[in-house]
């Protein structure tokens, strides 16, 4: 999950727990990975990595960061146990 999606990880977690009830995935866990935000300053060209949203360059203080990512909202993979586990 990118930081600029506008999607809240807490809300996603909350609704996932609500929706998994009484399904095959009742025991399933959701592991959300937040992708750091990478940006280049339009003023000083410094490249930064942020763990939360920022709008100002930490080096020169200029506004106008050129974000290189942030819109990620991907389902990367699902970890499942295959049938043999259940039978054994």
């Amino acid at each position: 999950m990118g930081l600029l999606t506008g999607v809240s990880p807490d809300a996603m977690q909350f609704y996932f727990e609500m929706m998994r009830e009484d399904t095959l995935g009742a025991q399933a866990e959701l592991d959300i990975r937040l992708e750091p935000l990478r940006a280049e300053c339009r003023n000083c060209q410094a490249v930064h990595e942020f763990s939360e949203i920022a709008w100002l360059c930490p080096v020169c203080g200029a506004r106008g960061l050129n974000f290189q990512n942030g819109d990620e909202l991907h389902l990367c993979n699902i970890e499942v146990e295959d049938g043999q586990d259940r039978n054994s």
């Binding site: 909202l73 990367c76 970890e79 499942v80």
Partner: peptide
């Protein structure tokens, strides 16, 4: 054995 299925799908695809 746990198996990992790689999807790499955009949720709003």
């Amino acid at each position: 054995m746990a198996k990992i299925v790689t999807l790499e799908q955009r949720i709003l695809k």
